[in-house]
Design a protein around this nucleic acid. Structure first.
Lengths: 222, 222
DNA sequence: GCCGATCTTGACACTATCGCTACGAGTTAT
DNA sequence: ATAACTCGTAGCGATAGTGTCAAGATCGGC
């Protein structure tokens, strides 16, 4: 739970603890990101209007490496704020003032979704490489130095790997990685798919696992 | 999209269609449940306060057999209503009046989550081939090399496969695949049906599943 | 305030797919 | 029996889509 007002933090913490949730708190964005990295949470409740960072920045800071559900609290009911937060990766957006029971219900709603879908296979083999989605590591076969991927490369690869064998449309990839206003910028996809293939395919010119379906999208073939 | 006010239905439908969503509408709970069963949607936007059923009843009616994402719209901001709807199985709850862009952002947020986890895989057998419409794959019987189809071929095949055993008229196929101004260009159909048969029929000269109904249209025979 | 890494953006061949025309075979109507 | 029609097949140029290279813009760390 991230909020800059100590009394709200206290109140929510008590409320949540009473329902048997374990609660870690942070008062600003930087602290929150470090705490989340140190002890990955199952859910983030994030108040906007933090002293040190823009709200969308915090969300992107989390989304760069985790798919943890994020519920945003905010005093601003402005539509543009909501859209920005949701498109940055938030799962829900609650406007203050809100009832505690409503927040609890929304927490149940998002965790119900996620809990049912936590498949216990965060490690995938892409050809000879071993990709660990939760640890964010890519290991080559001979145990040598590991392959480094940029945040955008991770984001793109993760979507494909979470849909093994399935075709993922260009629109969906662009929308999930870059946002809804980039749905036609297919050159981004070409650019980053090429980089992924250079790093993960034995023969980048003839990919065997990161496949193109012309005119439709891309597919990860296990 | 379920709403009892025709003008809201119309407005939303236009808005969503402009974003390339396919929209089916229903004006009451019973119609909605039947329509969802007949043609399972990828997302349900449900207005509360329907004439025939309680909102939570509709949600439970859907949740009984599908995990499709449900976004609830409501004029009532009462906390108890929100909790009831969310706990009945709704994924999000938006209070009227709301901005269209906010609803669109919430639609993106829930589909972003679900898109990766939807497991209802409708697989159809065309002779010895196994066609997975959601994964966009065609597998031959011996597990060997896979069959590749172009976007137009997929589009055409999908319409036929979604109407198993039924005759689909040439006009309808042409309109759905190429657009309303191509309703008489039957040569396109001949062209692409021949390609599909070459790829999916054991003896393309004597098709057993992709059948021609002379003068009328085509039919997929399971 | 500088520097390296990462993200954008533009440009250009190359290829597969598409839209379209044409023609023979089979079928139905007259 | 002949004509009119529909269907299957082949072939072609045009074009949209893709892979690739390169360079500018932006961000973050030291």
């Amino acid at each position: 739970m991230v909020d800059d007002e100590p009394q709200i933090l206290r109140a929510m913490r008590i409320n949540l603890r009473a329902r048997d949730y374990e609660v870690d708190v942070a008062a600003d964005g930087g602290t929150a990101l470090r705490a989340a990295a140190a002890r990955p949470p199952d859910l983030v409740v994030l108040d906007l209007g933090l002293p040190d960072m823009e709200g969308a920045e915090v969300i992107r800071g989390l989304r760069g490496w985790t798919t943890v559900p994020i519920i945003v609290l905010s005093g601003r009911a402005d539509s543009a704020d909501k859209v920005a937060a949701l498109d940055a990766g938030a799962d829900d957006y609650v406007t203050k003032p809100f009832g505690v029971d409503e927040l609890l219900a929304r927490i149940r709603a998002v965790t119900r979704r996620i809990g049912a879908t936590t498949d216990a296979t965060p490690v995938v083999k892409v050809g000879a490489f071993t990709v660990d989605l939760s640890a964010r590591t890519v290991d080559p076969p001979d145990g040598g130095g590991e392959v480094r991927l940029t945040p955008t490369e991770w984001h793109l690869l993760e979507i494909l790997l979470r849909n093994p064998g399935k075709l993922v449309s260009q629109r969906q990839l662009l929308q999930d990685v870059w946002g809804p206003q980039y749905q036609t910028e297919t050159n981004y996809l070409r650019q980053y798919m090429a980089q992924l293939r250079r790093k993960l395919e034995a023969d980048p010119g003839h990919p065997r696992h990161l496949l193109t379906e012309p005119g439709m999208g891309y597919r990860f073939q296990p």
